[in-house]
């Protein structure tokens, strides 16, 4: 071999950066530089700690009904006051948070699995597979989701489904109804990626379909999936809250932020006892704002077009 094809000596500057700079590390670095996104992330972590660990430190019990303590304003024993059955609002709010966060994340997980799979299949195989999947997606998109959810909620109530199991139905329903957006995005990405030269290269190398989809196509759609999923967590939490507020989502005695706010549906509670509905309302607000901040931060961090 002649001199010019011998291994090239790297110049000093690149040698200094010893650690392998993966696309993920770059994204993480950009994410951490975004102050709002980091604040959002810390807030969500705090919410999780509060909801999942907080209740263990509470001196109260969820089923401590005591009518003599009902409707107390915030005080030393009951930091956020009590409701009309004398239960501690803080404890209920933390437990409600578990449900709401769980619904948000599990519903999103379902959305991602269904949406990404169908979108990838539609994009990769094209032709009639694509037509069928995307026409079904069109039908789903044409359905007004809130009325459907209310009807399904009413059906669940009519069937007298146990409140604890009802939560899981709710997760699945919210998850399924949201898959179309993600499926469209993933399909679109895969259609563009398929035209890239590196996909032509996989064809020229004679790679199998499985490797093409799972090693080459899907990893390149992960940024889109992550961003969409994050934002849809907030959406799912809001949907759940809205349904619970209307009495067709999570139903009492299981607490959720939504059905706690429905305490504000009578004028006396609304005007005289703000401690009943302000804390869960703030939780919904803070959580969804925080998640949206993270989502925006992730979008900027993962978008290869924005410069370092």
């Amino acid at each position: 071999m002649s001199a010019d094809v011998m291994p090239i000596t790297e110049n000093k500057n690149t040698k200094k950066a010893k650690a392998v700079d993966t696309p993920w590390k770059t994204a993480l670095r950009r994410f951490t530089r975004n102050k709002l996104a980091v604040i959002g992330f810390i807030t969500i972590v705090f919410m999780f700690i509060l909801c999942f660990i907080g209740p263990f430190f509470s001196p109260h019990n969820l089923y401590d009904y005591s009518l003599k303590n009902k409707n107390l304003a915030p005080n030393v024993t009951y930091w956020l006051g009590t409701d009309k059955l004398g239960r501690d609002i803080l404890l209920r709010m933390m437990l409600a948070g578990r449900i709401s966060l769980l619904v948000g994340f599990v519903a999103t997980f379902i959305t991602v699995v269904v949406g990404a799979t169908l979108g990838a299949l539609a994009g990769f195989y094209g032709k009639f597979v694509d037509t069928i999947i995307m026409r079904v997606a069109d039908i789903f998109m044409a359905l007004p989701s809130l009325p459907i959810l209310i009807i399904l909620g009413a059906v669940l109530s009519d069937l007298k489904v146990d409140p604890d199991i009802r939560i899981y139905y709710l997760m699945v329903i919210i998850g399924i109804l949201n898959w179309t957006t993600l499926a469209r995005l993933v399909r679109g990405q895969i259609l563009t990626l398929r035209e890239q030269e590196f996909m032509q290269a996989t064809e020229a190398l004679g790679l199998k379909d499985g490797r093409k989809i799972f090693k080459h196509l899907l990893p390149n759609t992960i940024p889109v999936i992550i961003v969409t999923a994050t934002l849809s967590v907030a959406g799912a939490i809001l949907t759940e809250s809205a349904l619970s507020f209307l009495g067709v989502g999570v139903v009492p005695p299981t607490p959720s932020w939504g059905n706690m706010i429905s305490a504000a549906n009578n004028l006396i509670d609304f005007r005289k006892r703000p401690w009943l509905w302000i804390p869960p309302g703030m939780c919904i607000l803070i959580t969804s704002v925080a998640i949206n901040l993270i989502g925006d931060g992730l979008r900027d961090a993962l978008d290869p077009k924005t410069k370092k």
Binding site: D4, M6, I8, T9, N11, N13, T14
Partner: peptide, 20 residues
Amino acid sequence: SIPGQVPNPIDLEDNCHFHD
């Protein structure tokens, strides 16, 4: 052919940039 490649432009040292 000129061996090697154009140096990384970040924080170049105070020498002849073509030396390597």
